[in-house]
């Protein structure tokens, strides 16, 4: 692949019941922010403010000026609704296990 070739990236945004992945062809050296603007993702969702949202690539938070590589999926995130500390407190109060594999650990303790 020559240096002048365009690279293919994706821009994704997801609501619980509607998810959108847009494919965009951009020049090498394009940043996350430029790709989001190019994709026009804001036009599909009224409440989406891409400038204010946290963004990332494949599950890793990144800055808006990060330069993209071929095949990257730019993701626009939404904030959490639950407070992680509060959820943990509630689960602890209910006597539930809070660790990796919670469901299995719970069913095992139920059997005992």
């Amino acid at each position: 692949m020559g240096k002048d070739d365009k690279i293919k990236v994706e821009v994704a945004y997801a609501l619980p019941d509607e998810q959108l992945i847009l494919e965009v062809e951009v020049e090498p050296g394009t940043t996350v922010k430029q790709a989001i603007l190019r994709s026009g993702v804001s036009g599909y969702f009224q409440d989406l403010d891409a400038e204010q949202s946290k963004v990332g690539i494949f599950g890793k938070l990144t800055k808006l000026d990060k330069v993209l590589k071929d095949g990257d999926r730019v993701e626009i995130y939404r904030p959490l609704i639950a407070d992680p500390k509060e959820v943990r407190r509630q689960r602890a109060a209910a006597g539930k296990v809070m660790k990796k594999g919670a469901r299995e650990a719970d069913s095992q303790s139920d059997e005992k």
Binding site: A12, A14, P84
Partner: peptide, 16 residues
């Protein structure tokens, strides 16, 4: 890679 999200951000399943 069907889940969109990052640390301390909302996770969402891309149903498709």
């Amino acid at each position: 890679d069907a889940i969109l999200g990052a640390a301390k951000q909302m996770h969402t399943v891309i149903a498709d």
